[in-house]
């Protein structure tokens, strides 16, 4: 019985996977074995382990980690507070709404907001903190990325919080647990699935962010995504671009394996 169930649902899904995931994946893998002149070689893989690309990989992972961390830090309490609101579905929609404005335009707005003589800069100057470079720094890059990713983190967390059985929470309180203990032992573990999908929805795309690295960080941050973009569109070195993509996909598998093993569940 159960087996039949699975089969029926699998058909359209597996068809989709085959056409739009496996086929492109096979193509990426295939291209990664060709050097720029079209000869079969492992050169691209050797090139990936040169200092330039290793440095880039490490900094991408570092930035993606920071971005995910700060996004979670803001998104979790926001989602939690939203579930206690009166018109919470409406507020949730209002969280998603800004993502429908074109990202390039929002980035331009941020350039205006964060730039020298912009409102934020002026505010800082007036508050006595003094003018300082905000735009074109690593932190402004993290800030704007967090801004873009917040809705993608809030949604899954909100979903799991909403279904959280409030009687569990009350029971914990009744048993004399402190607010923090209740959160740590009851609420958070029960919403872990949401946190996990949120982190996946942020960390993985954050690894391959590309446009913001130029618009907001002025190329002071260079991610693997930027390099792929350039290899495909500027250098036309599809081989090297594909090789970096292969490593990105490997990174994703590692992240998922870590999440799956429940390294968060330890506490």
């Amino acid at each position: 019985m159960t087996k039949k169930w699975t089969n029926t649902y699998l058909i359209p899904y597996v068809l989709w996977i085959g056409l739009f995931v496996v086929a492109p994946l096979a193509m990426v893998l295939y291209y990664s074995f060709f050097d720029i002149q079209g000869h079969f070689s492992f050169e691209n893989y050797l090139r990936f382990f040169t200092p330039i690309y290793l440095k880039m990989a490490i900094s991408s992972i570092g930035y993606a980690f920071f971005i995910t961390f700060f996004t979670l830090l803001v998104a979790y309490p926001t989602a939690y507070l939203l579930t206690r609101m009166k018109n919470r579905r409406l507020w949730l929609m209002l969280i998603i709404l800004p993502t429908w404005i074109n990202i390039l335009l929002k980035a331009y707005a941020f350039i205006g907001l964060l730039g020298t003589y912009g409102p934020v800069d002026t505010l800082l100057a007036m508050s006595g903190a003094g003018r300082r470079q905000i735009l074109f720094t690593g932190s402004s890059f993290v800030f704007v990325s967090v801004y873009l990713f917040i809705p993608f983190m809030i949604l899954p967390i909100y979903n799991s919080l909403e279904k959280l059985n409030s009687s569990f929470v009350e029971a914990a309180y009744d048993l004399g647990a402190s607010a923090w203990a209740t959160f740590r032992r009851v609420i958070f573990p029960l919403t872990l699935e949401g946190v996990k999908s949120g982190c996946q929805a942020v960390f993985i795309p954050a690894l391959s962010l590309f446009m913001l690295t130029r618009l907001i960080a002025g190329n002071r941050v260079i991610t693997l995504g930027t390099a792929i973009e350039e290899h495909f569109l500027v250098t036309q070195d599809w081989g090297m671009g594909s090789t970096i993509a292969v490593f990105l996909i490997l990174a994703m598998v590692v992240v998922m394996a870590l999440m799956g093993k429940g390294w968060l569940k330890r506490w």
Binding site: I111, G112, G115, T116, Y117, L135, F136, R214, G218, N219
Partner: peptide, 17 residues
């Protein structure tokens, strides 16, 4: 060098960035 940018230099230079 302050930054390496693309088309947005048309936004940045007039505003004295």
């Amino acid at each position: 060098i302050k930054a390496i940018v693309g088309d947005e230099n048309k936004l940045l230079l007039p505003r004295r960035e």
